[in-house]
Amino acid sequence: MLQGFIDQFWPSTIDGLALGSIYALIALGYTMVYGVLRLINFAHSEIFMIGTFAALATLHGLSLSPVGGFSLVLLVAVLALIAGAVSGGSAVLLEFIAYRPLRRRGASRLAALISAIGASIFLQQLFARVVIPWWFDLPKEKGPLPIQEHFVERSNVIAIGDFVVSIDKFLIFAGAIIMMLALDLLVNRTKLGRGIRATAQDPETAVLMGVNIDRIVTATFAIGGAMAGVAAALFIMRFEETNYFVGFLLGIKAFTAAVLGGIGNLRGALAGGLVLGLIEMYGSSIFGSEWRDVVAFSVLVLVLMFRPTGIFGESLQQARA
């Protein structure tokens, strides 16, 4: 058992960091919305799913021959921009339709939670029944949507013995770190960021201080959605396929990562995502892939037993993020 861990240590580490980066980017959306609204936005996984479709459709539209190296970086940047815009827009629209009316009428948080679950199911089925058949000319049923040819040349960035990093995994990790830094700057250094932090701390006082809550909420959803969109673009680069239920499992894992890092805490989301990715990969190298989720969730339970607020604990309102 341990032999497997030793044999696969480096590949597992690299795969774990790449997977964890995607978790982290999705987790940011959960954590931001939770920080500001105290709402678990269960439809966030579908925002990610919409992003993957946007990225894949862009690829179909471009129909390039496989690219590698610098042009791949450029292509991913374009994909991230488009998927980020589409996902961010969808998130804003979602907030406008599914949450804002409830908020206006002062409905309980549980009502918003049900609305979130409803929106999630609605979006999944919308893609399964309407968008996929119409767009990809497939029968109105399930099925993966693979593209026929690859478009990524997976050259290795680093290759020292077992320590092999292919360009796609490197870009995923780098992309997550860059987005995280940018978001950190945005929240801590700009006026909008101050508004977000103020709203997270105390919405009523924030209003008294002249913060437009509706604008802040819209911005929060847009930023969280955009992060999911970037994650979607990186996901498409790595796997080159998507499906209408692609967000479900990833969403659950990302939510777990957010809780693991301390929900409401941006840096916690990044740390939680990376830790979860590594635990999954190490766990499966030791116990076999069928134990992957068991190991991951066992660790989550253990962490929460000793640190109920997650690894980083503090939340958005405590001025940190």
């Binding site: 497997g4 590949p11 597992s12 795969d15 996901f235 499992l249 990969m281 892939s289």
Partner: peptide, 18 residues
């Protein structure tokens, strides 16, 4: 084993490679 719902089979690939 793989999880039919998952997208990433990295751990299985690493095992196969080893």
């Amino acid at each position: 084993s793989i999880d039919a719902q998952a997208s990433d089979y990295g751990s299985t690939v690493n095992k196969a490679k080893a």
